[in-house]
Design a protein around this nucleic acid. Structure first.
Lengths: 151, 151
DNA sequence: CAAAATTATATTGCACACAATATAAAATGG
DNA sequence: CCATTTTATATTGTGTGCAATATAATTTTG
């Protein structure tokens, strides 16, 4: 049997595709929940960080979400255009852009309160089970990142 | 305590973010593996389907990968520009676009053979464990999709 | 302290990803 | 058999996502 005829692993059988498809499923689930707030899912992740505490820098957000400035700068500009955040240069270090919530951005937190519960409910699992699966997937990510560059 | 002061669930604590981050980790892992083949990860998924069997229609690919034509049409055009596939209108049903491999596309299969093993190795798990996690994540996707539109 | 290296962000270009719309072909129903 | 509906794909517009590059501000070093 030549390589061109060899059986190939179908995407549906692979772990990477399962993760890919689960990401799509979460995206589909969040879209209608976030639409009333005028947020996309990545924008929601940024808002979660800001609701947790301010101010934060662009780099600080990027480190937590694993996103670089090519993604974050236009995303933050859209949030600024929606009057949810303000971007200002830091006085101490002019290289830093500090992101803070506007009053409108602060108030959006109340409207977002029901979302985590709706998502948890959609998963059809109890909290300990969700946490277990989350930790296992996080361990997977860590293993994948650790092995990059190695044999 | 007002809503604006209420504690918020940090992204790092949520299952959805774990899945999101794992997708990023897989993407980072695949990029250097696929770069020698001149493929992106979504293009690799399409090629896996074609290597499994031809011809396939655009809709057939989209159904398996969960992608719509707005994503697939330009992706397939890029694969065609790279001389890996050919797109032709079906004679029986002129609405269908049939995708087939070129000789170059067929031969690329041999170069891709080592990838699944490299990825499996990077996960640091044995095959049964990979399959168990895959099935669990697939069950999660199914639960998320099933609950959309309900309650 | 001045030159070199580092750090923080922005910009550009390319590639998904999806909603909404358009178009044309095929199937269906009266 | 013709009007309606459905199906298959394409197009457009918006929003990520990342590599590569640019720029300006800080830090480090000789």
């Amino acid at each position: 049997m030549t390589d061109a005829d060899a059986p190939i692993l179908a995407p549906e059988q692979q772990l990477c595709f399962a993760v890919y498809a689960a990401g799509q499923a979460f995206s589909r689930l969040y879209r209608p929940l976030l639409q009333p707030l005028g947020l996309t899912y990545p924008q929601y992740l940024v808002m979660l960080i800001l609701w947790e505490g301010q101010p934060v820098t662009v780099t600080g957000i990027g480190r937590r979400l694993g996103l670089d400035t090519g993604t974050l700068t236009p995303l933050l500009k859209r949030l600024e255009a929606s009057d949810l955040v303000v971007r200002t240069r830091s006085a101490e270090d002019e290289r830093r852009v500090v992101v803070t919530l506007t009053e409108k951005g602060r108030q959006l937190k109340a409207e977002a309160k029901a979302i985590p519960e709706a998502v948890a409910c959609a998963s059809g699992r109890d909290l300990p089970d969700v946490m277990r699966l989350r930790d296992e997937i996080n361990a997977l990510s860590k293993a994948l990142d650790a092995s990059r560059g190695c044999t």
